[in-house]
Amino acid sequence: MKLKLNKPRREALIGYLLVLPWIVGFLLFMAYPLYFSLFMSFHKVAITPYGIDTTFRGWDNYKDAFLTDPDFIQKLLLFVKSTVVMIPIVIVFSLFVALLINQPIRGRQFFRAIFFLPVVITSGEVVQELFAQGAATIPLMDQSGVIAYLENNLSATWSAPLIDVINRFILILWYSGVQILIFLAALQKVNTQVYEAAAIDGASPWVIFWKITLPEVKPFILVNLIYTTVDLFTNTFSDVIKLIQDNMFQVGTGFGYSSALAWIFFAVILLVLLLAVWLFRNREKTAYAGSGR
């Protein structure tokens, strides 16, 4: 291509060319379907042998979701609550593991593989199969009597959340695969000479972590924050998603109503994400304010 273009324009052109396949795919398989589902959310949709029948309902689908649906709001709140608690745990845990497997220890490759392994478990049918077979809880915990011990020796107010965390611990581990990988990539970017210099200057590992490692991986914390939020909210065993899918094929509610539910859910996810990013940015500013940035 020997077009006479000045550099910025040429670059922009190449940029657009590279993005073009993505844009086309996106328009066809994401943008238009999204638009159509928004359209359906304001209608009553009936599928007939001759095509799709829509009758306009205005905001009624949304009103029904909030006012008459016995399950939706309750399930949504419960799900959001438990997920929001999980997000920081996943992030902290994956950073912790990434730090561990970044240490010079024997069998490092092996451990890396193991901790990245959940990526192949948590997607698709496999995880549902596992869940159906009860593998997502720790059977050893049950069998070794840890849970029974907690139940017997603590009051219900204390044992219930503890058991909940134990039961969900496996899920937290499983949902950390990609996050661990991202953190690991960030950690390996840090020049080892910086650590050596800091160690020579007498910095303790604790100080090195807060002053060198953490600032270096900070951009990746944000990446992981976004990834984790999205991953946890849209995974297959969300009760809310199940509810949305169930409503799709019910005669009384149908696609229109379930589209409305999907959009409400989407708005909630977006809200949580914006809040998380906002909190993160705010903290970052205050943290840097002291160091004169």
Partner: peptide, 18 residues
């Protein structure tokens, strides 16, 4: 990034149409 967040199940019909 926003597209990441949408429930895939909700776009089943429109995708079929496309």
């Amino acid at each position: 990034t926003i597209a990441l967040m949408f429930v895939p199940a909700a776009v089943t019909i429109p995708r079929y149409l496309i």
